[in-house]
């Protein structure tokens, strides 16, 4: 059983890592096509995408949209979670259900609904529209994580602060937020990741200023090239560095 376990582990790791490894290797392909045979190493594809204006702008756009939409989703989720954890309101269950609901709906449907509504009220497809969509998908996530993180201990601490005469915003800012820092960080990190990598909402709700996944998609549609591998590898590399850094700092203490 022991050998079987290890064999299984290795086999599955192979399956999981195969496409990524291939992607990275052929980003160095010295030729027009990122398929075997491997013709030698070149960095020209990396140079090409790093000097690609549209690609770099898309990168910047993605960062801005991910950052701002996650902050908004986090703030709304935090307020809602502390509100619902504080008192039992009439219809609490319905409210919770409503806040969670977008999580069970395909992104495509959310995108299509927003596209039609924005069309009607005359909001142009833009990064703003995309950001609004990303808050819709990330709000449930942030809310759920934070709501789950507020336990009895936290509730009594908040109550104590209020009984001592703290104002509501003081309670939230000085007591609740510091207490919930790990959950806030986790929620923000997840929301950021989802927004950063989201395609269909950004595809349908942008026009000229696009996010990185949309730019990669149009690059993919306009010709086969190792440059696509290079973009993918770069994004992968940077993300892994961030994840490992977080793993070593932020989440180390919180984990078992």
């Amino acid at each position: 059983m022991k050998y079987l376990s290890w064999a299984y582990l290795v086999a599955l790791f192979g399956f999981i890592l195969l496409p990524v490894v291939t992607l990275v290797i052929f980003s160095f392909q010295d030729g027009r096509l990122p398929v075997p045979p491997f013709k030698g190493v070149t960095f020209e594809w990396y140079a090409e995408i790093l000097t690609d204006r549209a690609m770099m702008e898309a990168l910047g756009n993605s960062l801005i949209v991910a950052l701002l939409s996650s902050l908004v989703a986090l703030t709304l989720g935090f307020l809602a979670a502390s509100g619902l954890a504080r008192v039992v309101l009439p219809g609490s269950v319905v409210m919770r259900g409503l806040l969670i609901a977008p999580m069970t709906v395909s992104y495509l449907i959310i995108a299509l609904g927003l596209l039609q509504m924005f069309n009607k009220v005359g909001i142009r497809p833009s990064l703003l529209a995309t950001g609004i969509g990303h808050v819709v998908i990330n709000l449930p996530l942030c809310f759920a994580i934070l709501y789950a993180a507020i336990g009895e201990h936290q509730k009594s601490a908040l109550k104590a602060a209020r009984d001592l005469g703290a104002r509501e915003w003081q309670v939230l800012w000085f007591v609740a937020a510091p207490m919930l820092t790990p959950a806030l960080a986790a929620a923000f990190f997840l929301a950021f990741t989802f927004s950063w990598d989201e395609f269909i909402i950004a595809f349908l709700l942008t026009r000229f200023d696009v996010t990185l996944p949309v730019e990669i998609w149009s690059m993919l549609r306009s010709g086969l090239s190792p440059a696509t591998n290079a973009v993918g590898s770069l994004v992968f590399l940077v993300s892994v560095i961030v994840v490992v850094a977080l793993e070593l700092t932020l989440f180390r203490k919180g984990s078992k």
Partner: peptide, 10 residues
């Protein structure tokens, strides 16, 4: 376009 190019080229 890309799918066709890929398929033909490879």
């Amino acid at each position: 376009v890309v799918g066709s190019q890929t398929a033909l080229a490879t």
